[in-house]
Design a protein around this nucleic acid. Structure first.
Lengths: 218, 218
DNA sequence: AAATATTTTTAGACTAACCTAAAAATATTT
DNA sequence: AAATATTTTTAGGTTAGTCTAAAAATATTT
């Protein structure tokens, strides 16, 4: 059996290691887990014994295949619940994360697969992140940040980095959401603001915004 | 903060004490919690310190008002999730209990109230048990057990006592579910079996069945 | 390459929830 | 009411996950 705490460590290692690809160091885990490095060392040892992680003293940690599978499954559950909360229970996209952190640990194959079907097999969560399927596969869309978009090109909004309530509300008030099509009109070198064209308007967004909005070329 | 284990003990005390009304003894709790009496004593002391329970050594335990409120809230969550699982995710009524045991511990006011609204404020769970509202109030329907029904009278099935998978499957296979209308044809004194009339059939059910099916006069 | 700084690990201790075994209180039989 | 049985509590110990403080390894600066 895998405990709730173990699951959370595995998830943290997965995210910190760029989807389970890179080695993660102890202090980084301690920070996201809000705990002390010594506790992390203890847990890494346990995960290593249980074959979820590869660990060599002082050399950081990576996930095993089993560990990655656990991580991807938790992420699948987290993102499906987020879709449920937004689409069915009228949560706004900035309210879902905390509740989903708890729901993601409910262990029932049937529950999550039926939920997936009920939601009609969504491919992305409300923040634009991809949802792994039953087998743990998911397509990685190559998104770029608005700040690095090309002038003249047309893009679709596919996600955000900052999920703060204020940012998401700002986007809502400017009619920018997931799927919104925009065209890059002008980049102002002075303050790195960007003029973009929307369906029926043209707006200028600050550098801050440009750094936190993800796009995909269309 | 209240822990998951504390919540489960409170729920057990509530149910064992006939909805928080009667005194519950240590061994009974140990049995339903699948643990030892000494562990129960430890926990009761803790619940008592936290003002969820009234405890006097060797005299058993009752819930305080706070304790009852916690219990009713967990029951509200449990039953709402059961409705969700059956109505939206196509679980059958014998599959829901275990998953709901986990879902009932998710702590989010908004989640549960929105779920309630999404399900259109159901009054009963899939087994016919009443669902408390936000304030913890719920109406107690005066149900009787089939074994005590009057010959010739017409009833509606409103609940079950035994929620085992085998019993629920037996009912399904005989086309008996919540809301099914039945008429009492005959009571056999020899073995206490009962002949009942359904929509398009007449069947004889054993004493066992008669003791576990709840009815309401129509 | 030596000195210093940082990171990581070890050692020993804490809490929540559990256990076993024995003692104490209560209940039941004779 | 004395003897016996049952229930409940206490005492002391275990495990998972956490902590602090000190030691060890690694990395960085001079």
């Amino acid at each position: 059996m895998i405990t709730l705490t173990e699951e959370n460590y595995i998830k943290a290692i997965y995210h910190l290691g760029n989807n389970g690809e890179e080695t993660v160091n102890t202090n980084a885990i301690a920070e996201v887990m809000q705990t002390k490095a010594s506790s992390v060392t203890d847990m890494i040892k346990k995960l290593s014994e249980k074959k979820y992680a590869n660990y060599k003293k002082y050399q950081g940690v990576t996930l095993t295949k089993d560990g990655r599978f656990v991580a991807v499954n938790i992420i699948r559950k987290h993102r499906l619940w987020e879709v449920f909360l937004v689409e069915k229970l009228n949560f706004s996209w900035d309210e879902v994360h905390e509740v989903a952190e708890h729901l993601e640990h409910i262990k029932s194959e049937k529950l999550i697969n039926q939920l997936d079907a009920f939601l009609e097999f969504p491919k992305h969560d409300p923040h634009g992140d991809p949802i792994p399927d039953k087998e743990g596969n998911f397509q990685h869309i190559e998104k770029i940040v608005l700040a690095k978009a090309e002038i003249g090109a047309v893009y679709k909004c596919v996600g955000v980095d900052d999920t703060s309530s204020s940012f998401l509300k700002y986007l809502d008030s400017n009619n920018i959401g997931l799927g919104t099509i925009i065209k890059i009109k002008h980049k102002e070198p002075y303050d790195n603001s960007i003029k973009i064209e929307l369906k029926d308007s043209e707006i200028v967004v600050s550098q801050n915004v440009a750094k936190n909005l993800y796009l995909k070329k269309v």
